[in-house]
Amino acid sequence: MRRIISVSLLLAAVLIVVPGILTLVGGGYWFRVMTTIGVFSILTMSANLITGTTGLMSLGHAGFYGIGAYATALLSTKFGWPFYLTLPVSGAITAAFGILLALPTMRLIGIYFAVATLGLGEIIHVTLLNWVDFTRGPMGISAIPGVTLPGVFTASDTTHYYAVAITALIAAFVLGRLTHSYYGNALRAVREDDQCAASMGLNVVGLKIQSFAFACFFAGVAGGLWAHTTGYISPGDFRFSESILILAMMVVGGLGSLPGAVLGAVILLGLPEFLRPIGDYRMIVVGAVMFFSILFLPRGLLGETPVLTVVRRQFGLAWDAKSNLGWRQ
């Protein structure tokens, strides 16, 4: 019962309340802001699976985001594929790339893994920039069709909001089940102490690869959404600075916390828009918010440990409402 209420409230908020408010404040532009926030929510939630839950600090997430965006752009401009094919296929392509590129780095931990993924991200960026025959290089790819379904709906800011919102809900559902279930405990065990996890029978390398695959899938889908909703992409959208932005969103929201990832994206992208009236000073405010939130809440605005309990209770994920701990018989 509690679960039905929680799910209904979440769906109502994302699908009715938020678009309602956006329409009241003037639609158009605010829908586009919210679409960007949605794309980055998906990116941050997915990066959170690798970095927050499994504990592998990835600095190359923007690279995988770029692979997904280019896959979608090329599939839809060259072959005319509709969004319901490009998005899952781009996700699968990105996941395949992710596994392939991650395999050699699986034995690395901590800062070494971070630097290796930084290198991967740069390789992807430089490839997008220089493989002109395939990616059109710095000119980027333009005239990417929007999210349309002939006879049902056409591409518009509202359609794009709903496309991103529904995909984000699906991502939250999948990533939520992965991280809040017992399987999530296995991933967290890898983060806390991988040797100890292995001695308890956990296949550490397998878990790392799985978390990378799922995270890259959704990074690819987010890239595809970005391509469809903006209509134009260029390598500049997928630089190291984007990876860092994703990391900052994750840390401000709370490493390992799924609602935290969304909150981080809302704050770091929404705040600059809200504060547009104060001009360039707004970036100082954003910086200050980041600084003080880390200073006073180092585990993030929505820290992992309390959020796990709340989400498990509210959404009944492998968790029993009576004991809050798990099914007894």
Binding site: L178, Y182, Y183, A186, L202, N203, L207, Q210
Partner: peptide, 16 residues
Amino acid sequence: SIGALGALGHSPFSAL
């Protein structure tokens, strides 16, 4: 639960 996960195996799909 980590020990139990080790004994019974851990698949992302059973979680999904």
